[in-house]
Amino acid sequence: MAVVPPPSRRRKRRMDQVVGLANIPIDWLEERSGLVGGVKYFLFRKVPSDINWFHTLGSATLTAFLVQAATGVILAMYYSPHPDEAYESIRYITHDVTLGWLVRGMHRWGASVFIILLFLHMARVFLFGAYKYPRELNWIVGVMLLPLAMLEGFTGYLLPWDQTAYWATVVGINLNGTGPIVGPLLAQFLRSGDEIGADSLTRFYALHMLLLPGAIMGLIGLHLYLVIRLGVSSPPWSEEAAGKERTEAPPSGERGLVRPRARGGRPRGE
């Protein structure tokens, strides 16, 4: 072990000065808003000690959504929601704009990643029983997020304005139209008239990039608030949550995605 020599007093004083200087803007912000404390509270809050990788699916879904939001903003700079120009602008983004293929690819594949992670996260919450008291409301908020995310997929699918996009949307809208009583009116509203046209494209575009993301962001905010307020749930096999005394943690090599082997027995390989 290397022996670290004690810093000279002068050096230490200078260090303190630098730290104090760096803290000035942070203190300024904290004193006026309390934001720094809030962020610290969010990042360093306590979670059960026996959570595992499945608990990261929610954050992963959030990350996927943020990727969609960021790439979507960039795509909106080049996309034109007009029937005569939409397809051309997509072609332009994919082939001519520098790195346009990458951003569009991220948005396109990221959409599937988002939905898949959403379902995996939902499955985790369901299978772990994490929706139970007192977290029912957060389950409800999540269930409201699910159709919004799928509507994002539906409205985004029309925007490339190619044959696949057009006919898939025709079929999708007409599926809505077969709903009893309100179906025909819903279909009429979605396609903004008797037939899919310029108004349908701009309508889907506005829904896709303004209304739905706004609603999703609001609900995600509520979702996170409830997660922070109620805390993260322990997995169903948690001995800690069951009130048993916590035994010595297994060696780090034995931890993993799966349930840890019952404690107290002889570890494998010994």
Partner: peptide
Amino acid sequence: AYGLQGPGE
């Protein structure tokens, strides 16, 4: 003949 209805109806 009937009045125009959407597909699937």
